[in-house]
């Protein structure tokens, strides 16, 4: 496989993000840039996994990146989209797929997608066409007339992702997409996220998770939130991006059947050991 690649511009940038509730410092100086990956002769999106132990501030960072939290007295710094224009994120600019894959239960599958398209400014006809194309792509064309309550968990997740792709431009944030899934289902979700990344050059998925092996299987870059310790071994409040891994350079991205590679297992073990220090 041709692994030649380069970067061309910025998709999403975290600029000195700090979150503190009074004395309780959650995040301290989070800086990170998701760059557009370019590969000759193909559309290659980006998949970044944000890892970190429970309670470290992943959800706070996720909500900020989703535009669901607005910088105020407790939150400083910024999250911006784009290279030149640098648009601050606000709700609706980036797609968000929450852990429970929320959908409008009172709307049928197609209607769920069409309303999202309408919110993004599409005409009804254009929204229906785009919705049907997405459903086709996700293998759900025959489910367009179903209620969400009639779908399986996996189907709901795909509809929820499709709904966000109807509305957002190219960036989708996913909160714990592997949580509570069996290993086969995890592989399906990994394949789905990789499929999305291949649909468009600018498609960017940020996966917030604590499932190490799934993160390594799906991502091209991994960032790990962590805290430092003082001399006595106690955590110093305030997590930041303590580790960054470029899985492409490590030969761990875009590989079919990646879980069978010995270096996959080795790296997962290294990350697991790293978690103990976070």
């Amino acid at each position: 496989m041709n692994r030649e690649y380069g970067f061309d511009g910025t998709i999403l940038r975290f600029d000195d993000v700090n979150i503190a509730f009074g004395e309780n410092v959650i995040l301290l100086g989070v800086n990170y840039e998701i760059k557009n990956i370019v590969r000759p002769g193909m559309e290659q999106g980006q998949v970044v996994a944000l890892l970190g132990p429970s309670g470290i501030g992943k959800t706070q960072l996720f909500r900020l990146a989703a535009g669901l939290e607005i910088p105020d007295a407790t939150i400083t710094g910024s999250v911006v989209i784009g290279d030149e224009q640098k648009v601050p994120v606000r709700a609706g600019i980036v797609g968000v797929v929450a852990q429970s894959y929320p959908l409008f239960m009172h709307r049928k599958v197609l209607d769920n997608l069409v309303v999202a398209g309408r919110r993004a400014g599409l005409s009804v006809k254009a929204a229906k066409e785009k919705a049907m194309a997405l459903l086709e792509g996700f293998g759900l064309r025959d489910r367009y007339d179903h209620w969400p309550a009639q779908l399986s968990g996996g189907q709901c997740q795909r509809v929820a992702i499709a709904q966000q792709l109807m509305c957002s431009e190219h960036v989708v944030l996913m909160d714990e997409p592997f949580s509570g899934l069996d290993p086969l289902m995890v592989d399906k979700v990994v394949a789905l996220i990789q499929e999305i990344s291949l649909l468009n050059e600018f498609n960017t998925t940020v996966v917030v998770t604590h499932e190490i092996s799934a993160a390594v299987a799906v991502a091209d870059h991994i960032i790990v939130l962590g805290r430092d310790r003082d001399g006595e071994g106690n955590f110093i409040p305030g997590a930041y991006i303590k580790h960054e891994f470029n899985l492409i350079d490590m030969g761990l991205a875009w590989e079919p059947d990646i879980r069978r590679l010995p270096k996959f297992a080795t790296f997962c073990t290294e990350l697991r050991d790293l978690f103990k220090e976070l």
């Binding site: 909500r63 989703a66 709700a91 929450a98 309303v115 709904q163 957002s168």
Partner: peptide
């Protein structure tokens, strides 16, 4: 939040 992410 879900509705907000859809620009409602």
């Amino acid at each position: 939040d879900h509705a907000r992410t859809l620009r409602y």
